[in-house]
Design a protein around this nucleic acid. Structure first.
Lengths: 334, 334
DNA sequence: GAACTGCTTTACAACGATGTAATTTGAACG
DNA sequence: CGTTCAAATTACATCGTTGTAAAGCAGTTC
C-alpha cells in the first residue's frame, strides 16, 4: 500500500498538515521538524496522491494537447515541443486526437470542465468556430493554427502572407503555371482556406490565373493520388505549391513515378518545413517557421491564461520564411 | 461554477447517492426517479469530477504512453494508434517523452504510483532493464519494443529475425558489402543491439565480414552526418542497412547529395516502414509490420493487466515482412 | 512573573463521488 | 388490515490532501 501523509505524519510524530507543509514548502517549518519529516518521507517512499490533491485544490496538473492527426510529422513535432515545455514546467500532457471532427473538438471542452485538465492547447481544423462561440464558459484554452475567431488566445503563422510569399517566390523564379494543392473553394479547413487566399492574391498580382487541386485529406497518400490524377489529365504545370509538406511528399512521389524530374521538369514547394523536408530528394522548398518557438509561445500563453482567466484574448503571429532547397532550384521553360 | 452530484440531487429532490446511481447505472433506479434525475443532470450540465472519482475508487481513467522521441515518425504513428484504441475504450492518454534517458523511464513508475495513471505503455530504449528489475511493485505496464526482461508484458517485433531477414534479402539480391547503420558494439539501445545480432548472423551465414556504422542518435540528421563521413572516407559499399527508416532518410540524402544514385550505385534498406518510406524517391525497402495491430495488442494487454495484476508476464511477437521498394530494385556490380 | 510578540504546529473541515449498511417504500399475501 | 419481503432510497463515512483558524510555544519586554 502506498503511504499517505497520515502514515508519514505518524512515523515522524507530527500532524498530517505539517507533512503537507514540508512537501509543499509554502508554510515555514522548523529545521528540526523538517528533517524528521523528510526522513519519514524517504523511508516510506511517499508520493502524493494527485487525485486527492486535484480534488482539494481544483487543479490536476494536466493540460491537454489536441491535434487533428497525430500521425503526421507536423503533429509529432508540435507534440514533441509542447511536451518538453510542459515537462520542464511541471505539467503533464494529455494527448487528444480530433480527427478533424468538430464533435471531438467540442468534447474536449466538456472534458476540461470535468476537471481532468486545467488547460487546453487545441489545433482546430474546421473554419467555423462554432464550438467556441456560444458564449460558453471556456476552459483556459490556446488555439494553435488557423481559426477565425477573436474569443480565445491563439498562436499562428500568418498563413495568407506565407502562402502569398511562397507564391511570389515561385513567380520570381519564373514559374507561371503554379498549381496549388490542398485548398480550393470547397476547403473546409481554415488553413486551406487562408493559404488559398494568399496564393490567389499573389497570382492576381501577377495577372495569372489560378489553378487549384482540391483535396481535403492532407495526407501524402491522398495528395499523391490527387496529383497523379491531375498529371494524367493535364499537361505538366511549372510548379506545384502544396499546402503542407506531407502533401508535397506525396506529390514528389506521384511526379517522379511518372518519370518527371523535380525541379527540372516541374518545381515543388511545401508548407511547414517538417524534419523530413530536408531529407527528401531533392530537398523541399517550403515555408518554414520555428516550431519550438511556436509551441513554446502556445504553452506560455496557456500558463498565463490558467493564471488569469480574465485576460483579453491575445493573438501571437509567429514569423515565417521561405527556405529554398533543391525542389525549386531550376526554372522551367525559362 | 460546475454542478456537483449534490446540486443535481437537490434539484431532482433526491439524495446525492441516487444521482450517483443514475450516473453509474450499477444500482437499479426506478424509472420515475431516473427520469427526474436525468432531467436535472441535463439542466445543470452535470459533468463528474474525475479527480474526486479517482480519489474515491483509486482509478484515474488515464494511461500513459511513454516514447523515447516524440518527433519521430515512428513515435507519431504509434501514438496515433494507441490514442485511437484508448479513446474507443474510454481511456485518456497521457503522453510522456523519455528522451532515451533511463531516469525519465524510472520517473514514470513513480508517477504511476502517484495514482495519476492507471497503466503505462512504455517504449524503453536502454538495454538494461534496471528500472524494472529491483523487485519493485510495478504499476500495470506493457513494454513495447526491445528490452531483455521477463518481468513485464511486452509487445515487440522479433528484431533479430527481422534484421536477419533483411540482411539475407539484400544478400539474395547479390549485395556483398552491406554496411549496417545504427548498431554496433557500443550501442546501448536494445533495438540496435538486437538488430546488429540479426545482421551479423546473416552475414556470417554468407561468410562475409560485417561493417557497422555506429551511431547512437537515430535521427535522420545524425545518420546523414555519419553516413556522409563514411562515404567520404571509404569506397562505396553495395548497400546500407539502416536500423530505422528515419536513418535511411538521412542516408538517402547523404548518398544522393554526393552524386551517387540509389539503387543503381548503392542499395538502401530501412526498418519500421513509416508512412514516409513509400514516398521517398526511390521508395524505401524496409522491414514492415502492422503498427495498428502492434498498438492495439499493447493496449489490449494493458487493459488485461490493469484488470488482473497477477497474470503471468506475457510476450507478444508481431509479425514482420520485407517490403521491397525502389531503393533496392537493382543489383550492384552483379 | 505576567503579558505580549511572532513563529510553528495542530485540529478540523472541505473538495466531490460512491460503497456500506441502514432505512424507507410499496407490493403481495394471509 | 396487519405482516412480510424485496426493491429503492437514504445517511454516513471515506478516499488523501490542504486551507483556515485556533492553539501551542518560545523568547522578549515591562
Amino acid at each position: 500500500m502506498r503511504a499517505t501523509v497520515k502514515d508519514v505524519a505518524r512515523r515522524a510524530g507530527v500532524s498530517p498538515k505539517t507533512v503537507s507543509n514540508v512537501v509543499n514548502g509554502l508554510v515555514p517549518v522548523s529545521p528540526a521538524t523538517r528533517k524528521r519529516v523528510e526522513l519519514a518521507l524517504q523511508e516510506l517512499e511517499y508520493v502524493p496522491n494527485l487525485s486527492a490533491r486535484g480534488l482539494r485544490n481544483g487543479r490536476s496538473g494536466l493540460i491537454a494537447l489536441a491535434l487533428p492527426k497525430l500521425e503526421t510529422a507536423y503533429s509529432a513535432e508540435i507534440a514533441h515541443h509542447v511536451v518538453e515545455f510542459a515537462h520542464e514546467a511541471g505539467w503533464s500532457v494529455q494527448l487528444e486526437e480530433t480527427g478533424s471532427e468538430p464533435v471531438r473538438e467540442h468534447e474536449l471542452f466538456v472534458k476540461a470542465r470535468a476537471h481532468q485538465i486545467d488547460g487546453l492547447i487545441l489545433n482546430p481544423v474546421v473554419l467555423e468556430a462554432s464550438a467556441l462561440e456560444r458564449g460558453m464558459t471556456l476552459p483556459p484554452v490556446v488555439l494553435i493554427g488557423e481559426v477565425e475567431q477573436e474569443i480565445a488566445d491563439r498562436v499562428a503563422v500568418d498563413s495568407v502572407a506565407a502562402a502569398r510569399d511562397m507564391t511570389r517566390f515561385l513567380l520570381e523564379r519564373g514559374h507561371r503555371e503554379i498549381v496549388s494543392v490542398g485548398g480550393g473553394e470547397r476547403s473546409v479547413s481554415a488553413a486551406g482556406h487562408l493559404r488559398s487566399i494568399g496564393y490567389r492574391e499573389a497570382m492576381a498580382e501577377a495577372g495569372l490565373p489560378t489553378r487549384e487541386i482540391e483535396e481535403a485529406d492532407w495526407a501524402p497518400a491522398a495528395a499523391a493520388r490527387a496529383i497523379g490524377a491531375f498529371l494524367d489529365a493535364h499537361p505538366l504545370p511549372d510548379a506545384f505549391f502544396c499546402f503542407t509538406d506531407g502533401m508535397a511528399m506525396g506529390a514528389l512521389s506521384a511526379i517522379t513515378s511518372r518519370g518527371y524530374r523535380v525541379p527540372q521538369d516541374v518545381a515543388l514547394a511545401g508548407f511547414d518545413d517538417i524534419d523530413a523536408a530536408q531529407f527528401l530528394g531533392p530537398g523541399l522548398t517550403t515555408v518554414s517557421f520555428d516550431k519550438r518557438d511556436f509551441a513554446g509561445r502556445a504553452f506560455t500563453m496557456l500558463v498565463e491564461r490558467m493564471q488569469d482567466r480574465d485576460l483579453e484574448p491575445r493573438l501571437v503571429i509567429v514569423g515565417h520564411r521561405i527556405v529554398e532547397r533543391g525542389s525549386t532550384r531550376a526554372t522551367v521553360r525559362a
